[in-house]
Amino acid sequence: MMMTERDEQAKTHALIAYLMMVFGLFTGIFWLIGAVWAMAKARDAKDTLFEDHYNNMISIFWWGIGLSIIGVVLAAFVIGYFLLLGVWIWSIVKLFKGLAKVTSNQPYRSF
């Protein structure tokens, strides 16, 4: 499949956002920077091969934030620690799946 210039740019920006979010799993601030990068570049990726990668990253960010807040609140009851661990593992799986797909020039949800 031949990629257009827009596809190439969308892929590059998706890679940057994914890598920042992966690094952010260990530092925190890069999680936010990667998500903001994805949100800022999502419009440029509209109607490209990589459009759904941006939806994936934005979804991981918002679900991760929401579930982490719940996990912090529930940490007083110990179950929150398990929720936080689960969110972290879920994020790793989704981000690395996205990285594997984007480097293979595939949409996130390929059938």
Rank of each mutant, 00 (worst) to 15 (best):
I60D: 00
F82I: 13
T103S: 11
A14R: 02
F23E: 15
K11V: 03
E5L: 14
A10E: 07
V87P: 02
T48R: 02
F96A: 07
L32C: 10
G98H: 01
T4E: 10
Q9W: 13
E5M: 14
Y18A: 06
L67S: 06
M21F: 11
A42Y: 07
F26L: 14
G80F: 03
M1F: 09
I16K: 11
F23P: 11
Y18M: 04
N55C: 02
G34Q: 04
D7N: 14
A35V: 10
L74D: 00
Q106I: 04
L74V: 03
A76Y: 09
V102C: 04
F30R: 06
W62S: 11
K94S: 08
G24R: 05
D44A: 14
K94V: 09
S68T: 05
L99D: 04
F23R: 09
V22F: 12
F61P: 09
I16G: 09
I79G: 03
M39T: 10
Y54N: 05
M3S: 04
A35W: 00
H13D: 14
E51I: 10
K94Y: 09
L25G: 07
L25F: 13
T27K: 12
K97R: 13
S59Y: 04
I29T: 12
I92F: 13
L49A: 01
S91M: 05
